[in-house]
């Protein structure tokens, strides 16, 4: 499951921020901000994607680089949200 989610996230990043197929261009741990991939509109796009794709609600307080600034972080954030939802 987790791997599939990570692939979905990577595909979204590839198609909407990176626009490329070649995996070398950004590693899962790379900062999206440092790579110049995310601007103020990009964050809103990313949040909208996570909410529709995974059916979760991203709280305003969650919209911080610690949760969203790399593919690894996004995947971990989505996992924790879904696990919390499942446990509840």
């Amino acid at each position: 499951m987790t791997t599939m989610r990570r692939d979905q996230i990577r595909t979204f990043i590839n198609d909407n921020f990176l626009f490329r197929e070649d995996r070398e261009s950004i590693a899962d741990g790379d900062s999206l901000l440092d790579a110049g991939l995310i601007d103020s509109t990009g964050i809103l796009e990313l949040v909208a994607f996570l909410e529709t794709e995974f059916g979760l609600v991203v709280d305003d307080a969650d919209i911080v680089p610690e949760n969203l600034d790399s593919i690894d972080r996004i995947a971990a954030y989505v996992d924790s949200k879904l696990n919390t939802a499942a446990a509840a």
């Binding site: 901000l33 601007d39 103020s40 509109t41 809103l44 307080a61 911080v64 680089p65």
Partner: peptide, 16 residues
Amino acid sequence: YLPQLQTQSQRYREAF
């Protein structure tokens, strides 16, 4: 005058 920046979270505003 930039709406998408005004709705940004403080932490991301700082990051930008």
